[in-house]
Write a protein that binds this DNA or RNA. Structure first.
Length: 730
DNA sequence: GTACGTTCATTTTTT
DNA sequence: ATGAACGTAC
């Protein structure tokens, strides 16, 4: 077997790759080739007669897993890798373990994986059952507490033991009911996958031994983002052979809100006494200027891993470019222009360019403007394909047909399309289900048919409608048993008149119909490991992978991606956008020092994705929910030295004043606002592009004046920030 | 009881 | 933009 991956490794990388016996901890900076080291090591092991099946490689994100598979695939030049369940995320690996050994658990092999949407729907139902206020017991927050407890391997009972406040007592009740509902629906949430896999291995010694025998070598990428359960699972899997090889960078830890635990790295050496620790501080990715900028940002953190990253490149590279725009549309337009310029004047391809942002909502403006400018792009995550209403509806039908206990799906589609089963009937169904420990479907069936037995009564109209719905389900079930999945979907659309519903009730019906077509083709083309189990495998991939938008690598596209998802990736040119206080750092981390440091690491991750060109973009005003807010520059921008930046630097106007005059964690003033004369409604003004107009209104905002101006001819009414607009009085 | 229009509040990151 | 909550018409 010809293996080329081991060429061109430096001394330390080589040492890491060839360190075979016992535990190894690789602390590596950005761009040091972490994934490359892992894949090279796998290749090297294979070269030394270890079967690829004896190696388990666990990653944190799907992207990382598929990247790794792709690389291994290239190195080994053969394709069993594609289907290997032992190279993947922790979650998919655990789901695999659980399904393989479902007979040891009290669960059906085809358990469902409840995603965030399903989880929230369950929590809301529980709150309804228990008569608790959604405003106080915010579902997302409750889920956070439950997740935290689970990832500490605490049981529900243990959670219940340590409660002092009335609030926590209710959280405990919610948690208990939540878990019961999941069990009843034969479903697991993301944390259950990990927890159950852990207990499965922990309590079945023979099983554990067999997996220790099976997986002789264990690799973990992005180790800084593992949580407690994941670490415990890793310990079990490496229990016998102790060939555990982990790679991580504490400065890139950005998932603490998901209970990622940095102490896993710190304790590693204690837990594995013979650990070989290798540091990789040389950066092979970025130019010196980019590295310098990243260092200047990260070095302001108190909790910093102390080390010096140095570049493998000789030249300093391009200066970092700042982009300043009026609002998010102009930001997207300027970046679109810059992208076109780069494509025209350099060798850079669209696939070498990424636009990154803090929150998914920020992708909207880019989608709009790039579509308009015919710049092909690929949206990673975002309002994901599988989160779309019409897709969720159809998947809910499929899920319910396969598993009648799936209450989340039942409640989603019981009246979608509307079929005369309104809120009060649904309330009765869930109430009856709660009181008699029934699934919602059973509850509905009994309410509609044997009314004598229940305290709750339905009148004839809703009863008839429920039975109509049950008939539809029955027919679909029969259909599902003797036809292909695309026929089932066609049948669903047919019998529910979903198309009519969609056209008359939802926005953008054409787009939604296209999405349904895409769903059908992606199911049809889905490559199942076990073809007989195709639909279940597909549903699992929908919950766990959720990433189809990013699989299309056949055409040249620019990438739109959140900073979180960008981890582990690299691009020739990176546009970091939304560098405003409140966006990055996000406003919700303002009063928490730890979270603020994590936001800083997030920017660090973003900066270090760039190889050659880095753009830092911010706006003066960002729209949210109808409203629009004046934004100050991100406080992090002030940490990047002037000398590294070309364009308008936030530091420049303040050049002579000492930096300490600037209060880091307090409200920062927009220093870029020019001194301006008064301007009032009714005055005549001139704009550089739109020409002459009349001020309709002039409203003072934090640091500026918001102008609404009506222009001559057909240019219409436009809004500006005075300091940015170039508007002059005439 | 249901459908449908209006109003009001919401406001991160992901497996 | 989206969903819950409320009011109104059938």
């Amino acid at each position: 077997m010809q293996i080329n991956a081991l060429n061109n490794l430096n001394e330390n990388q080589n040492k890491a790759v060839k360190h075979i016996d016992g535990p190894a901890l690789i602390i590596a900076g950005p761009g040091s080739g972490k994934t490359r080291v892992i894949t090279s090591r796998i290749a090297w092991l294979v070269q030394n007669n270890i079967s690829i099946h004896q190696i388990a490689a666990l990653t944190f994100t799907n992207k990382a897993a598929s990247e790794m598979k792709e690389r291994i695939f290239k190195i080994l030049d053969s394709n069993p890798v594609k289907y290997l369940p032992n190279i993947g995320t922790f979650h998919s690996f655990c789901a695999y373990l659980l399904r393989e050994n479902s007979e040891l658990l009290a669960v059906d092999k085809n358990f469902l994986i409840y995603d965030n949407y399903d989880q929230i729907s369950v929590i809301k139902r529980v709150l309804n059952d228990l008569n608790l206020d959604v405003k106080i017991y915010k579902p997302q927050m409750i889920l956070g507490l439950i997740s935290k407890s689970k990832s500490q391997l605490e049981t529900v009972e243990e959670f219940g033991k340590n409660i002092s406040t009335a609030f926590n007592k209710n959280v405990y009740e919610i948690y208990k009911n939540y878990q019961e509902k999941l069990t009843q629906s034969n479903a697991m949430d993301f944390d259950d996958l990990l927890v159950n896999a852990y207990f499965l291995l922990k309590t079945n010694i023979n099983l554990l031994l067999s997996y220790n025998e099976k997986y002789k070598y264990l690799m973990i990428d992005e180790f800084q983002d593992t949580n407690f359960v994941q670490y415990k699972i890793a310990r079990l899997l490496s229990n016998e052979h102790k060939n555990i090889f982990v790679v991580g960078d504490p400065d890139q830890s950005i998932y603490s809100w998901r209970n990622a635990d940095i102490t896993n790295i710190l304790n590693f050496k204690t837990d594995y006494p013979n650990t070989n620790v290798i540091y990789l501080n040389q950066n092979y990715r970025s130019s010196q200027n980019i590295i310098d900028a990243s260092q200047s940002v990260i070095s302001e953190n108190q909790n910093k891993y102390d080390r010096k990253i140095f570049s493998a490149q000789n030249s300093e590279g391009n200066l970092i470019v700042t982009v300043e725009s009026y609002d998010e549309i102009e930001e997207a337009e300027k970046i679109a222009g810059e992208v076109n310029k780069i494509i025209k004047s350099t060798q850079t391809k669209l696939s070498d360019i990424a636009v990154m942002y803090r929150t998914n909502a920020q992708s909207r403006a880019f989608e709009q403007v790039f579509s308009l400018n015919q710049i092909p792009f690929q949206l990673v995550g975002g309002t994901r394909f599988y989160q779309r209403q019409e897709i969720k509806d159809l998947l809910a039908y499929i899920r319910l047909v396969l598993n009648l206990n799936d209450d989340s799906s039942f409640l989603r589609i019981i009246n979608t399309p509307t079929r005369g089963i309104g809120k009060s009937t649904v309330d009765k169904i869930t109430q009856n289900a709660y009181m008699n420990s029934l699934s919602c479907l059973e509850s509905a069936k009994s309410l509609a048919n044997d009314q004598s037995n229940n305290e709750i009564n339905l009148s004839t109209g809703p009863s008839k409608n429920i039975n109509m719905f049950l008939d539809i389900l029955n027919n679909l079930q029969i259909k599902s048993e003797n036809s292909e999945i695309d026929e089932l979907i066609a049948e669903i659309i047919e019998t529910t008149k979903y198309r009519d519903y969609l056209i008359s009730n939802l926005s953008n019906p054409e787009e939604r119909l296209e999405n349904i077509e895409e769903l059908i083709s992606s199911i049809t083309n889905f490559d199942a490991i076990d073809p007989k189990n195709k639909i279940n495998e597909f549903l699992e991939s929908v919950s766990l992978i959720n990433d189809v938008d990013s699989i299309q690598d056949d055409t040249e596209r620019l990438t739109l991606i959140t900073l979180h998802q960008s981890k582990g990736l690299e691009y020739d040119t990176v546009f970091l956008t939304g560098l405003e206080d409140g966006t990055l750092p996000h406003i919700l981390s303002f009063d928490n020092e730890m979270e603020m440091e994590e936001e800083r690491r997030l920017l660090y991750v973003g900066i270090t994705r760039a190889k050659q060109r880095l753009y830092l973009s911010r706006v003066f005003k960002r729209g949210g929910w109808g409203k629009s807010e004046v934004k100050s520059p991100s406080r992090f921008l002030y940490d990047i030295p002037d000398s590294l930046v070309v364009g308008h630097n936030v530091n420049k106007p303040d050049k002579n004043s000492p930096k300490s005059s600037f209060k880091r964690y307090s409200n920062i003033k927009n220093t870029d606002v020019k001194k301006k004369p008064e301007i009032n409604a009714g005055e005549k003004v001139k704009h550089p592009t739109y020409g002459e107009g009349i001020v309709i209104s002039a409203v003072n905002s934090t640091d500026d004046i918001e102008l609404t101006i009506a222009f001559d001819q057909n240019k219409g009414i436009k809004k500006f920030l005075y300091s940015m607009s170039g508007i002059i009085k005439i």
